[in-house]
Structure formats: C-alpha cells, structure tokens
Design a protein around this nucleic acid. Sequence first.
DNA 1: CCCAATTACTTTGATAATCAAAGTATATAC
DNA 2: GTATATACTTTGATTATCAAAGTAATTGGG
Lengths: 148, 148
Amino acid sequence: MRENHNSLNQILVKLFNDILKIEEKFLCRGEFKSLTMSEFHIIENIGIGEGKTMSETAKALKITSGTLTTGIDNLVKKGYVFRKRSTEDRRKVLIKLTEKGENAYNEHYKFHEEMVADTLQEIPKDEEEVLIRALFNVDRYFKKKYKL
Amino acid sequence: MRENHNSLNQILVKLFNDILKIEEKFLCRGEFKSLTMSEFHIIENIGIGEGKTMSETAKALKITSGTLTTGIDNLVKKGYVFRKRSTEDRRKVLIKLTEKGENAYNEHYKFHEEMVADTLQEIPKDEEEVLIRALFNVDRYFKKKYKL
DNA sequence: CCCAATTACTTTGATAATCAAAGTATATAC
DNA sequence: GTATATACTTTGATTATCAAAGTAATTGGG
C-alpha cells in the first residue's frame, strides 16, 4: 500500500516534468518555431469553431485576462488569431483562429494523438481501459476536492 | 480504439493543467508563501541528504546552470539552501537544504503523498496496480522514444 | 612542469509569462 | 439618467528562462 503510494508519487512527478519538456522540445520547432508553449496552449483552448470571448478563455486557462490580452496581442501579430467585437454586446471581444492558427491547432492535436497512440501501443489492451478509467476518476476527484 | 485515444488525450491535457494549478494554489501559501513553484521544484530535487552539485541538479531539472544559479541565489537569500565548495574538486559547488529547506521539502512531499493517497482511495485495488504499471510503461517509453 | 583544453559555475543581456491594480468603454438596473 | 457592474486593456513589477561570455579550477599531453 504505502509502497504503491511512493511509486505513484515518484512516477507522477517524473512523468510530469518529462511530458512538459517533450512538448516544448518537439512542438515549438519546424513550421511553428515562433510559437511558445503558452501560445500553443491558448491556441488549443480557442479551438476550431465560432470564437470564444476573452474572459471565457482566460477562465478556462486559469490566467488573468490581462495576461491573456498580451498573449492574444502576440498571436495576432504573428497571424494566428484575430479579434472581433461582439455585435450584441460591444464590450465583448471574440477571438478566433486564422487559417494559420487552425494549422497550428491541428499540429498540436496530432502531436498529442501520436504521443498517446505510441504510448498505448506499449501497454496491454486490458490495461488500457483501466488506465483511462483510473485517470477519469483522478480528475473527477481533483475537481471535487480542490474545487477547480 | 480511436475512441480511447481521444479520451486519453483529453483527460491527460486536463489533468495536467489541473495538477499544475492545484500545486501552485495549495503549496505556495501558509508557511511557504514566499516560495514559487520553481523554487519548490529545486528544493524537491536537492532533497534531504548529502548535497548535490549545481550541474547534477540543473540536469535533473532540465534547466541550464545559469537558470539554476539565480534560483539558488534566491533560495539562499530566503534561507532555504546553502552553498559549499567541494573540497576534492574546488570547481564544484555543493548545494544543500537548511533546516527551513527540509521543512519545505517535507511539506511538498506530504502534499504529493496526500494527493496520491486521496486519489488511490477512489479507485479499486486491482486497478491501482494496473495504473502504476501503466504509468511506468509510459515513462519508460517516453525516455526511449524522446531520448530524455 | 606547463600550457591547452575541458569542466564547473556565474554573470550578463534579452525575452516571455505572469499578476494586481488602474484605466476605458459598454451595458444594466433602479 | 446616473450609479454600478462587466469586459477588456494598459501599466508597472516580478520571476523564469536561455544563450553566450566570463572566471576559476582541473586534467592531459608534451
């Protein structure tokens, strides 16, 4: 029992750092070298589709709207995002991916998908289901306990 | 199959962001409010015991030694760490936790332990083993594939 | 033994991410 | 119609980070 706790603790810490570094290393290069991880994060969060407001997006990313403003400023400069005032409520700003932005989104998505596909290949089929169920439990529990 | 990949993808992204924010929110307060997450990370990595060198620690944290130097500067100022030249090789600097540093280390450790304990409580015993094995596989695979 | 190359660390100069608080414009409510 | 609330941006500050240059100690030929 205690044994398991220690293992899980250690492996989680390791996996965490490793995944962060992998993403950074393999994503921010090639076509999208000019993008930082935070910017990829913002792009991932805006997603394909109808456009989100600033506050919605800031809340989802758990950053202040001031921080998001400068992030979006840069992404607009770099041509990945555009702003558009909402017509129904002119205080609101809708942000939306340009075509270039959608390409970056897809790249990010593909990277994750490959990482997951490669990884699942390594573990037996029956463990796969358990892993996914366990992770969902973990997340549900976190949300409840820490009121995210 | 494809279904599983998508689920795992989404849940991993969510878990990641959530855990990062939880740590930040719950750790950097109270007695250790003056510590940032990066500083907690450094402390975690130095650990209890005989003292690590700068380069060892920088490598483990996957940051440059310049970055670590400023990190340690701050931790020394705040009283969590002290430096000591190695006597056998006077180029080397050994860093070691002060008593205050060890308290912070234990706090961090306890936080992780509780998080894991709480979480494992939520999943059935037989899934627990599978989860841990799966995560070890994932990490092993990452190291191989991405040459960490 | 000495000097060239290597290693270990620090410093410097630059950039990015972040926050809190103040500022601006629009909407809502009484 | 004004006061309050909401949505966003700006400002000023701090922290984390890197690459490259600098300093000091060690090591390995000759």
